[in-house]
């Protein structure tokens, strides 16, 4: 009787262990499948892009169609300008709103604000482009660097706000109290003690936001619009790297395809280096600061 029971359990255990093994294999396989696209995309961009990388790419203007050579220096400069405009708008708004949420953010308004920043994160970037178009392009009657920068800033703001809030909330209350107990005003405590202590987290958030907007294309299609020349001021169209990659990729010209790959390689390296750099720094540097 006893033996039969043991035997039966042993048999069922063998089957259950086989199922267990099979599922484990499946999950490992799923992991390989999920990681594969990153490897493939990176590999193709490196292989196809490396050929087109030369000094011309970052120093020369685009050559006319059909002519060999030329570069997209204007797009690199344009992207830098757009990121600068976006940061100039988004950093003050995002950081101060983050300060509000972390230091004073209680009650219904703060809850609404948190919800709306989350909503803002989820809005498709093309929709942001439409809004920047109606708010800036239409009144100024021209596609412009300004409108592109504003579109990117709308994408940046929620990330900066929430990471600032998170970073400041991690600053221990005792640090705030130490400052207040010295007879230091609240605003000075926030600016001189709390923000510097949480700076690592804020910088991380800002860097991640910059990495994200440097690759954004959709909101620039009808704001920055693109250009084959150097920018002519904030109220004129301006080139941008991701925009140029898109326009070249859907063009029929082989030379342009090659340049698109080359620019893609530069953009990808920029984004990946920012991301990997930030992650390795945040894991070792900022956390071990004894905060």
């Amino acid at each position: 009787m006893q033996r039969a029971l043991v035997l039966r359990r042993t048999r069922s255990i063998t089957r259950r262990l086989i199922v267990d093994r099979a599922m484990a294999t499946l999950f490992a396989l799923a992991t390989v499948i999920a990681v594969a696209p990153l490897v493939l995309v990176v590999a193709y961009i490196v292989v196809n892009g490396v050929r087109g990388i030369d000094l011309d790419l970052v120093t020369k203007l685009p050559a006319p169609v059909g002519e060999a050579g030329g570069g997209m220096a204007n797009a690199f400069v344009g992207s830098a300008i757009l990121i600068a405009i976006a940061s100039a708008v988004a950093l003050p708004v995002g950081i101060l709103a983050g300060v509000y949420l972390s230091e004073f953010g209680r009650g219904r308004f703060a809850a609404t604000l948190r919800f709306l920043t989350d909503v803002l994160t989820g809005i498709p970037s093309i929709v942001v482009g439409i809004v920047a178009y109606t708010l800036v392009v239409v009144p100024f009657r021209s596609f412009s660097a300004l409108s592109g920068g504003l579109a990117l800033s709308i994408i940046m703001i929620p990330t900066v706000t929430r990471t600032t809030e998170e970073a400041l909330k991690r600053v221990p209350t005792t640090i705030r109290e130490a400052s207040l107990a010295l007879g230091v005003h609240e605003w000075k405590t926030v600016l001189r003690i709390v923000i510097p202590t949480g700076l690592g987290g804020i910088v991380t958030g800002v860097m991640l936001a910059i990495a994200r907007i440097s690759g954004e294309t959709a909101p620039l299609l009808f704001t920055a619009f693109g250009s084959s020349f150097w920018g002519e001021g904030p109220l004129k169209p301006i080139a941008a790297v991701p925009l140029q990659i898109f326009q070249y990729a859907i063009s029929p010209y082989k030379e342009w395809h090659d340049q698109a790959w080359a620019a893609a390689l530069v953009l990808m390296l920029f984004v990946l280096v920012l991301n990997v750099g930030i992650r390795s720094v945040t894991r070792t540097g900022f956390q071990s600061r004894g905060v």
Binding site: V41, I45, G215, I245, A249, A264, M268, V271
Partner: peptide, 10 residues
């Protein structure tokens, strides 16, 4: 983190 336009290119 890979920009959408790069995935599109690929």
């Amino acid at each position: 983190a890979i920009p959408s336009v790069l995935l599109g290119l690929w």
